[in-house]
């Protein structure tokens, strides 16, 4: 009984919120301003029906998600190794860190105009000389990938450096006196010891990447994605689509975070218990 009640506690405020929303919508009676809850749910429960000529909700979600995963993967591939190098080598750190400090205060959204000017509407397949690949890649603009990359860059890089430099010297010395080579120390000591911090970086980075893609899609020149859907439904005063899109953004963000959190818990099971 107690456990059931505790589990239900989390639902009290969301349900209350929905009730207040619904009452407000009915009283106001202006769907162009406040859509009814059932209208929003109607959009959410029909993810595969065509919306205002922009494709389906599912399609737009998939496009946004694909763009994020594309840019985020690049960020991981570049920033984790760079962070590992900066964390293990003083020389690399001294070389690269000034640039990091210089660019770090720049919010990724501040890069959007730059990316638009620089990359225009170039799509990823065009980089390989293909005009249309007839895959989802046709919806991935280079500029957007760039923005997502910047969103993920610093959390991943800084947490990786932090993770590596925070490895207890006792562990490294123990491995050395047991005859471990530098390569083995890196693989069997530094990497596992830094992994929890790296995973934190990935989680924060993915969260920011997801946030900035929505912002990037809202800008002129965008033609699909969940952010685009928000702006377009705003222009057409289709508020139920706008609100449904926002709900989807929240849910996807939650799912991405939870997914990485599960992986993170697996690799850092030892961490909280160790201290």
């Amino acid at each position: 009984m107690n456990r059931l009640f505790r589990a239900l506690q989390g639902f009290i405020l969301p349900v209350l919120f929905l009730v207040v929303w619904e009452v407000w919508a009915v009283r106001l009676d202006n769907p162009a301003l406040v859509p009814r809850v059932e209208a929003v749910l109607g959009v959410l429960f029909h993810p595969f029906s065509e919306l205002i000529g922009t494709g389906t909700l599912a399609w737009n979600t998939a496009v946004s998600l694909f763009r994020v995963l594309f840019g985020f993967t690049i960020a991981v591939i570049l920033c984790v190794p760079l962070g590992l190098c900066m964390g293990t080598s003083q020389t690399v750190f001294r070389l690269v860190n000034p640039l990091v400090e210089l660019f770090r205060p720049l919010c990724p959204i501040a890069w959007i105009p730059f990316a638009m000017a620089f990359f225009g509407v170039t799509r990823v397949p065009q980089l390989f000389g293909v005009r249309y690949s007839d895959t989802i890649l046709d919806s991935v603009q280079v500029g957007m990938v760039f923005i997502i990359f910047w969103g993920g860059l610093f959390p991943i890089l800084l947490n990786t450096i932090y993770g590596v430099t925070g490895v207890r010297s006792l562990w490294i010395e123990t491995a050395r006196t047991l005859g471990a080579t530098r390569r083995r120390i890196f693989r069997n000591v530094i990497l596992p010891a830094a992994l929890p911090a790296i995973m934190t970086g990935l989680r924060v980075g993915l969260g920011i990447s997801w946030m900035v893609i929505i912002a990037a899609e809202m800008l002129p020149g965008s033609d699909s994605g969940i952010g685009y859907l928000i702006m377009y439904s705003y222009e057409l005063a289709e508020m139920q689509i706008l609100v449904a899109s926002m709900v989807v953004i929240g849910l996807i963000g939650l799912a991405l975070n939870r997914g990485l959190e599960l992986v993170s818990l697996r690799v850092s099971r030892w961490q909280p218990l160790e201290r």
């Binding site: 207890r168 006792l170 010395e173 123990t174 005859g179 069997n188 000591v189 992994l195 030892w270 218990l273």
Partner: peptide, 18 residues
């Protein structure tokens, strides 16, 4: 350099927790 004939046991917390 490192003395291959020796190894060192520390006071505590030297085990690899992973």
């Amino acid at each position: 350099g490192l003395n291959r004939a020796c190894t060192l046991v520390f006071q505590q917390f030297s085990l690899f927790p992973w």
